[in-house]
Design a binder for these strands. Structure first.
Lengths: 170, 170
DNA sequence: GATGAAAGCAGATCGCC
DNA sequence: GGCGATCTGCTTTCATC
């Protein structure tokens, strides 16, 4: 491992310069992380060895992160998903950071957002059924110190994009 | 390929029975989809060939889906994320489904949830900056037919879990 | 940087238990 | 269903340009 290689890729803002090929590689791996180097090479028009080196550098620079497999929630007994919209009573840094750290440890929590606006937190949870949702809301959220109010929104339909857009830097 | 193998795994509810080993494999691949079959085999205590067959069956049954690589948003010029909380004026099936289909095609949209409660939709978007966020809100959401009101919540902090909990079926 | 060749290793198949 | 041997093909490295 050479830290110097990483620095070569980075400009003063700490963000590596990415060319069309890099962006192509990132796009393909966001769509399907199980693509072989050979397949990616064919798509971006380079040799497998070159493509392999590009991928290695993108990983080393932290631009390309881990890959995560999707699993069918129903197969795990997840029958219901919901959003908790939460208002906090205290807004001190320590309290809020602690709250985020704590709830992300709750198994049913899939993601948590600290936001501006009417609510302070939006938390996406997965549960077995409505009974489970009630228990989760009461045990882990409504009763938590620092929580002023929790609104529960059942999720009827969810859509996901796995490819981030590219805006460049100017 | 044999469709019969899939059916062997499934019970009358269309969900395959999963044993401890299957759940272990799913847990590992959710955490890191790039683990080799050999590494997974070592963790679950089976031979690589057996583990390989387990993984093949989980994929065939649709329990194990695609894998997606994470990319650093900053490297793509994404400087800001937000949630749009949307109230619709029409709640007919066709209108709502169409709305979901449309917005998930917008490059800045990362996920969209159709929910119960005060709002009808919660949409997670990624943008370059506040100017970009304003343009996106006005051009793609506020002005869209069927939209009654849009509240914008800037995301200060976001946490994600990649491992789903297991609730079993009883 | 990119390349092709070589080496090393993982994925995939199969007969057997 | 699980196992180990086998074969194939990909990943990874490296000398060369």
């Amino acid at each position: 491992m050479s830290g110097d290689l990483t620095n070569e890729l980075r400009n003063q803002s700490g963000i590596p310069e990415l060319d069309r090929t890099d962006l192509g590689i990132l796009r393909l791996l966001q769509k399907d992380a199980r693509l072989s180097v050979k397949e990616i090479a064919a798509h971006v028009g380079l040799a497998p060895s070159t493509t392999h080196e590009r991928i290695r550098r993108l990983r080393e620079a932290g631009v390309l992160g881990d890959a995560h497999a999707e699993v069918d929630p129903k197969a795990l007994g997840i029958g219901l998903e919901a959003l908790f919209m939460i208002e906090l009573s205290k807004h001190k840094r320590g309290t809020v950071d602690r709250f985020m750290d704590d709830i992300v440890q709750v198994p049913e929590v899939r993601s948590a957002f600290l936001v501006t606006g009417r609510y302070d937190l939006v938390v996406h949870v997965v549960v077995r059924d409505t009974r489970h949702l009630k228990d989760l809301a009461l045990d882990q959220f409504t009763s938590r110190p620092g929580t002023a109010r929790v609104e529960t929104s059942i999720i009827f339909d969810a859509r996901q994009r796995h490819e981030l857009p590219v805006f460049g830097r100017s």
